[in-house]
C-alpha cells in the first residue's frame, strides 16, 4: 500500500494492522517519532494526519492510505529548523528529549488551527502529551514562542 508522508509517496509492504509508528521507524528510517507507552497515552509517537495530531503507535497503516501524514522530519532540518523547532531550541525545552518530537508535532497542529492560542488553550491542547523529565513549563513557553514566530511570518524556518 502507499503512504503519503511529508509530501512524498512511500510504497510499503505490511500487515494492514501494523501501527504507523513501526513503519516509520523500522522501514522508512523516520526515527523522530518515538515509542513510549505503545498505548496512545504518552504522546511520544505523535504525528500529524491531515490536520490533526494522531498517536502513530495505535493507528494502523491501512487506515492512513490516501491521507497526508507529517512527521517531525517534515517540520524542518538541522540547518533550517521550522518555527516550532526553533522555539523549542531557544527555550531549551528538552531535557532527555524523548517526548519532544511528539510535543512539537502537537504544537504544530495547534498553531495551524489557532495561530494565537492563549495560555489555557495551549495547556488544554498539549494535555495529551507527557514529559517525564518535568520540562512542561519550558515546553509551554516554547509553544508560546513558536506562536510569536508564526505571527512574525514564520521567519527563520519553514512552516509545516
Amino acid at each position: 500500500m502507499n503512504l503519503d508522508i511529508n509530501g512524498k509517496t512511500f510504497q510499503i509492504d505490511a500487515d494492514p494492522t501494523t501501527p504507523l509508528l513501526y513503519i516509520l521507524r523500522d522501514q522508512l528510517q523516520l526515527n523522530g517519532a518515538k515509542f513510549g507507552c505503545g498505548l496512545g497515552q504518552c504522546g511520544a509517537c505523535t504525528v500529524i494526519v491531515d490536520k490533526q495530531p494522531v498517536f502513530s503507535c495505535i493507528t494502523p497503516v491501512s487506515a492512513l492510505q490516501g491521507r497526508k501524514i507529517r512527521t517531525i522530519e517534515g517540520l524542518g532540518t538541522l540547518e533550517n529548523p521550522g518555527p516550532v523547532q526553533r522555539a523549542f531550541i531557544e527555550e531549551q525545552a528538552a531535557q532527555c528529549g524523548y517526548c519532544i518530537p511528539g510535543m512539537m508535532m502537537r504544537a504544530q497542529a495547534l498553531l495551524e488551527q489557532n495561530p494565537a492560542p492563549s495560555k489555557s488553550d495551549i495547556r488544554r491542547y498539549m494535555n495529551a502529551n507527557l514529559c517525564r523529565c518535568g520540562t512542561h513549563m519550558r515546553i509551554l513557553r516554547a509553544v508560546e514562542r513558536a506562536a510569536a514566530f508564526v505571527k512574525d511570518g514564520g521567519k527563520g524556518g519553514t512552516a509545516g
Binding site: 494492514p16 493507528t59 494502523p60 492510505q65
Partner: peptide
C-alpha cells in the same frame, strides 16, 4: 483484518486489531 481487498481503508477488523486490541 486481511480481508481488506474491498475497502482496505475502512476495514473494521484491521482498525480494531491495530488500534483497540493493544
Amino acid at each position: 483484518a486481511k480481508k481488506s481487498d474491498l475497502a482496505p481503508q475502512s476495514n473494521g477488523a484491521a482498525i480494531y486489531a491495530g488500534s483497540c486490541a493493544v
